[in-house]
Design a binder for these strands. Structure first.
Lengths: 193, 193
DNA sequence: TGACGGTGAGACACGAAGTGTCTTACTGTC
DNA sequence: GACAGTAAGACACTTCGTGTCTCACCGTCA
């Protein structure tokens, strides 16, 4: 994708400026200064300005998120184990994400929007791209996409509003949840591998 | 002075907005919203807008600073002890001031200006007003003002750039410093009380 | 050496946002 | 029922951010 070190600097600058001042208060110039590039260069890299820049930042963050997540999914024993690991480590990642918690604290409206409304389709899209290869061994493509979408929505929901009943960060709780609510729906069509 | 609870709310709002976004990014409207007053009211309270408002905030912070400091100066045994307590507790106050450390971190330029250039005369002024009554017992008024000014400058300097030689937050070090550099200058005219 | 791609710096017009003032209507108090 | 203080919003004015463009500069490669 984008290997240009200057672009990475700009994205890093956008991230840290965003943490310091919030999306609403940041200007293109702030980011350009922080990144040590001129405004002209920034517009050359991200034609469209702030919107495009922050879109790119969200995509990068999302891809990093799933890259980190993938590490924990490698040795999965079976379909159930794969799903349990998915929700568990995704939950851990979310809870450990400092940038996310800063954004949720300082600008809850926009951040929630990105997690639950405008941004959700992209989250599900990226999740599907990253997780499809892993689920493919167990389920037909369309079914896999369905379960990835469902789990994405659930992980986000339980992260934002923790439940008394379920803690998707806990192995036993996550396993029980998957066994009860997810697996039954797909049982008949399961493929062993 | 100003006992109006709404004014206090506005000053508190200015302080917290300032910590969140920095002086440069805050707007009058942000502060009015945070304080729960209308913009019109805010201009009525502080005619002149942002400048006047933040001036008032600095004055309040400064007076609170010296009010807290005064608590530690009551039982001073003698002139030396008074000066030692002054520099020591002032240093402690400065080091413990979260607002100050936030401001120094997020907007070092403006904050340093307030501590060392534009704001210094006021700091010295308020320090003199607060400390003069305590020093009066030992020194003539003019001499007292001189020593208060000198110590103000020194405490700020050692706070901003700690020394290897001297730690004005430590009782022994502060005492040695006062004995070596301050008392000799005033010894001849000392008045016991 | 000269062409070339990429960059910083700055000018520019435009639009958005903040400012400071004012008027109006509302609310609670005496 | 007069009064003081306030919220809300209109208003003109100014500042600031934006997006685009031009130009000068610099290192690279031919």
């Amino acid at each position: 994708m984008s290997l240009d070190p200057a672009e990475l600097r700009v994205l890093d600058a956008a991230k840290s400026c965003c943490e310091r001042w919030g999306l609403a208060k940041v200007t293109i110039e702030d980011i350009a200064n922080e990144a040590g590039v001129s405004r002209a260069t920034l517009y050359r890299m991200f034609p469209g300005g702030k919107d495009v820049l922050f879109e790119a930042l969200r995509v990068r963050e999302l891809e990093e998120f799933f890259t980190r997540l993938s590490v924990h999914l490698d040795g999965a024993d079976d379909f159930e184990d794969l799903l349990v690991r998915c929700v568990m480590h995704a939950t851990h990642e979310l809870r450990a994400d400092q940038h996310l918690s800063l954004m949720l604290a300082s600008e809850p409206g926009d951040t929630l929007g990105q997690l639950t409304v405008e941004g959700l389709p992209r989250i599900i899209g990226v999740a599907t791209v990253f997780l499809a290869p892993l689920v493919d061994g167990y389920l037909p493509r369309a079914e896999g996409a369905r379960v990835v979408e469902l789990l994405s929505r659930l992980v986000i929901s339980y992260f934002l509003a923790p439940s008394e009943q379920v803690d998707l960060g806990e192995p036993e709780s996550a396993r029980a949840f998957i066994q009860t609510f997810i697996l039954p729906a797909f049982q008949p069509s399961l493929i062993r591998s």
